[in-house]
Amino acid sequence: MSEFLDFLKHKYAYVAIGEFKPGRFAEAQRLYEKAVSSYKQGFQGAFLLQKPGTDEGIAIIMWEKIEDMEANKNEIYQKVLEEMGPLFVNPPKTDFYEVCNEIDGFSEE
């Protein structure tokens, strides 16, 4: 029964969509990796996507609960936000999404 209840639990995704100033994506990526590496409680994984040939990107950070993101706001997180802010053309659009479906890719095992 507990496996079924665990199955019913949904993760949450924090999504940020933005554009960096020309040539600043690599620096933003380094800062993103630094921030994400400091996350612990409830952290479920992260993705950083870049539109090919541009400085536009989408950051997706997976959390067990929305509150877990708040619990992970530490000195590293604050410092990274301060360093990353000036790299954006405009502030990114951010929001939380509930993960309603998760489908694994094909495996030849």
Rank of each mutant, 00 (worst) to 15 (best):
Y12H: 11
Y12L: 02
Y12S: 10
A13H: 07
A13D: 03
A13M: 12
A13Y: 10
Y14E: 09
Y14F: 10
V15P: 03
A16C: 12
I17Y: 02
I17H: 00
I17C: 09
E19M: 08
K21L: 15
P22S: 14
G23S: 07
R24Q: 13
R24K: 15
F25I: 01
F25K: 00
F25W: 02
F25Q: 01
F25N: 01
E27R: 13
E27Q: 13
A28L: 03
A28I: 00
A28W: 06
A28G: 14
A28E: 10
Q29E: 15
Q29M: 08
R30V: 14
L31R: 00
E33R: 14
E33F: 05
K34V: 04
A35N: 06
A35R: 11
A35L: 06
A35C: 12
V36H: 10
V36E: 00
S37I: 02
S37D: 10
S38L: 12
S38N: 08
S38T: 12
Y39V: 09
K40F: 01
K40M: 13
K40L: 12
K40T: 15
K40N: 10
K40H: 13
Q41E: 14
Q41S: 14
G42L: 01
Q44Y: 07
Q44A: 15
G45C: 11
G45W: 07
A46H: 05
A46S: 15
A46P: 11
F47R: 13
F47V: 14
L48P: 03
L49R: 14
L49P: 01
Q50K: 15
Q50F: 01
Q50N: 13
K51R: 15
K51M: 03
K51Q: 08
K51D: 09
P52C: 03
P52T: 04
G53A: 10
T54P: 00
T54W: 10
T54H: 01
D55K: 05
D55H: 10
E56K: 07
E56A: 12
G57V: 06
G57F: 04
I58Y: 03
I58W: 00
I58A: 00
A59R: 02
A59G: 05
A59L: 06
I60H: 07
I60Y: 08
I60G: 04
M62D: 07
W63I: 13
